[in-house]
């Protein structure tokens, strides 16, 4: 049974993550007022935007009851292949669009392969996508010989450097995808089918939902999103490498869970994930800003992630059902 809370208690109970986020920022401001600068905000948002696109897809996948560990490798492959195609095909607008489309298609092909193995060969997503990830990483290594591929394409450079109203172009791209994902999930038949599939696959199937299609399509979305994230990353770094973004998949899962979407599927929403990934990156940057570099930072990041999720579970355990 739901109980009614008023004011602050209700807020604490329903939005523990937002509360934590605000408290953490407050502490940062208190300890080091210089943290809140336009430049810092812009930089945090760039990271949030790049990883955020993949996190949106991961959230949708988790809502559907799927999971993808291969997006890290797919993300790196996207960067590498994009740089390669940009260098090869030249700097005309047509060539750049073609490079983006071909790269995205290659990433979606990886997704389709995942979908085929999980949905039709009925291999568990965890192991299937882990294996696919290793294969893709291997392909990237063979393709590059383990080296970084860079690009000096001026348009890419402009995309990465440019700002509008103080925010990077990349952030606007992310906002676009957030709105798109939110609308699809909330207001389309496809979105509703995804929720139903994750809520109870058997019931969904016996209600005439095309469960095979929804489950397969999720992996295409994951492939597409890792490609987009890869392209955005290239705009920022003007290079692609197997070494970039190896922790992407787990960061995306963390953002989803921290945002409050349960791993069991069928519930949650993408807007919460935006909050989740914001918290994670403010945390990363904030800790670095406080002088906790490198190894300590990693350790504390893990501990804080765990605390957030545990706190959320504790606060909302009665509300979940």
């Amino acid at each position: 049974m739901r109980t009614k809370h008023v004011g602050i208690r209700k807020f604490v109970n329903e939005q523990p993550v937002l509360l934590l986020f605000i408290s953490f920022v407050m502490i940062l401001i208190f300890v080091k007022p210089t943290f809140v600068s336009i430049n810092n905000i812009k930089n945090v948002l760039i990271d949030v935007s790049i990883y955020g696109v993949a996190a949106l897809a991961m959230t949708i996948a988790i809502i559907t009851g799927a999971f993808d560990l291969s997006i890290s490798a797919n993300f790196a492959w996207g960067q590498i292949f994009f740089c390669f195609l940009l260098n090869r095909w030249g700097e005309t607008p047509g060539a750049m669009v073609a490079a983006l489309v071909v790269m995205l298609l290659s990433c979606m092909l990886v997704g389709a392969f995942n979908g085929f193995v999980v949905v039709f060969l009925k291999v568990h997503a965890f192991i299937a996508t882990m294996a696919t990830g290793i294969i893709v990483k291997g392909i990237s290594l063979v393709f590059t010989g383990g080296n970084m591929i860079s690009t000096s394409n001026p348009f890419i450079k402009a995309m990465g450097r440019g700002t509008f109203l103080g925010l990077s172009y990349l952030t606007y791209i992310f906002i676009g995808f957030v709105l798109l994902a939110h609308y699809v999930m909330k207001y389309t038949r496809y979105g509703r089918s995804l929720y139903a599939t994750g809520g109870n696959r058997k019931v969904a199937e016996l209600s005439g939902v095309n469960v095979k299609f929804t489950r397969f399509s999720i992996f295409l979305i994951l492939g597409f999103a890792s490609g987009i994230s890869g392209a955005m990353f290239v705009c920022l770094m003007r290079a692609g490498s197997v070494l970039y973004g190896t922790d992407l998949a787990l960061t995306c899962v963390a953002a989803t869970v921290v945002g409050g979407t349960p791993l069991t599927g069928g519930k949650g929403n993408v807007l919460r994930t935006v909050l989740g990934i914001l918290l994670i990156y403010v945390l990363y940057k904030g800790l670095a800003f406080l002088g906790l570099q490198g190894y300590y930072n990693t350790m504390i990041r893990g501990a804080v992630l765990l605390s957030v999720v545990a706190l959320d579970a504790f606060m909302t355990r009665k509300e979940r059902w």
Binding site: R192, K202, V203, L206, G266
Partner: peptide
């Protein structure tokens, strides 16, 4: 197999 028990009635009906 008939209902998604964790969903509200509206969602269960419109599915």
């Amino acid at each position: 197999t008939g209902l998604v028990l964790a969903y509200n009635l509206i969602w269960n009906i419109s599915i």
